[in-house]
Design a protein around this nucleic acid. Structure first.
Lengths: 210, 210
DNA sequence: GTCTATAATGGGATAGAC
DNA sequence: GTCTATCCCATTATAGAC
């Protein structure tokens, strides 16, 4: 697929708009407008809006998930493990997404958040069916690193964590603007991830009864 | 306004659907269908969908915000303060929302999350303009309870916290279903809030350089 | 206040010429 | 592969009878 093919232009425009506005609030007309291609070409190349959404997500998932899988397996093989290290497994795989797109890491996390929040049930199904083993290994690694937590408490805290990440990334552009103007703090996406990790690790590890 | 007036029925149906599906994905047809009133009555009573959204939110905000304000001012007057206490300021005001609706506390938090995530810019504007002083006092109370954090770190962590709460509440029904079937754990909304607080307090208080 | 009917808009998808 | 033109559907909003 050449770099400026119609298909490519549609994918690039779609991911940008999906990340900014969510899936439901982005029309095919907006996408083809930004991409400067004909409206009908979306259905020619992808068949439907749903399939376009999947294609946009899989450009990232197919790169991110195998890399994360590998890092988690390595972590599981280590004799000792802590939560910082487990969360850290995702950093390098995330950063490789710059190969897909210069702003790939943040776009991917934004898209993930949109998929979780919009009523895009088919997307959750798609991810679990294609990349379920990665999620399982993550769970195992967390359990090994936080043995003092019951499975139920772990369940809750992982969802708290997911919420923190997804929400932060969904509004990361606005937040970084504010940090820039109010605190004169220039921060890139990797910097933001490293701000998140101590927060997440401390939250997950906290004593439940405190 | 009598308990079963058309206006009341619309508000009740709208808040339920808005909380479940978000604002954009809920049509006036769905609302009037659930409320069993005529489609045109929404525009007669509220003028537009936007105004209906504001009315739904303000039923809760007008109860919650003054109560939270009072609790925060009391906390600010205390000689010593910790993060558990500051977050705790919101628990009792939240629980009073059962007066608005039996499931008021969770519905309110879900609505808040939807407003933040959907592109409902006008809603953020509405809240900040009407209840900005509460947000300021919250910030002051947090600063007093976590003096070791820089204003910039505090800014980030409050947004992490907002993300955690909002995301958790937006999916609280599904999460509690899973906890019920997988871990046989029956939990109400107040229980969930008390699961959140240690996580949030530990995350906010964590050492940034760790 | 409530209803029916309808306007006006914007959405996804497709047929068929090129 | 790409384009125009159009279909069909759902949406918000409103006009006007009752």
């Amino acid at each position: 697929m050449s770099i400026n093919s119609t298909k490519q232009k549609i994918l690039d425009a779609a991911e940008q708009l999906f990340a900014e506005r969510g899936f439901a609030d982005t029309s095919l007309r907006m996408i083809t407008g930004v991409a400067e291609v004909n409206l009908a070409s979306v259905n020619y190349h992808f068949g439907s809006k749903k399939e376009l959404i999947k294609a946009v997500m899989d450009r990232y998932l197919s790169v991110f998930m195998p890399a994360a899988e590998q890092a988690l397996l390595q972590q599981l093989a280590a004799p000792h493990s802590n939560l910082h290290q487990v969360f850290g497994c995702f950093v390098a795989p995330l950063m490789t997404l710059t190969r897909v797109h210069p702003r790939g890491p943040e776009v991917f996390l934004q898209l993930l958040g949109r998929g979780y929040i919009d009523n895009q049930g088919f997307l959750r199904w798609f991810i679990i069916n294609h990349y379920g083993s990665v999620l399982n290994h993550f769970n195992q690694a967390i359990q090994a690193a936080a043995p003092h937590l019951s499975p139920a408490d772990l369940f809750w805290r992982l969802h708290f964590t997911l919420g923190t990440v997804v929400f932060t990334m969904a509004s990361s552009d606005a937040l970084r603007d504010i940090a820039q103007t109010d605190f004169n703090e220039e921060i890139d996406i990797e910097g933001l991830v490293h701000k998140l990790i101590p927060y997440l690790a401390a939250g997950v590890a906290a004593s439940p009864t405190e």
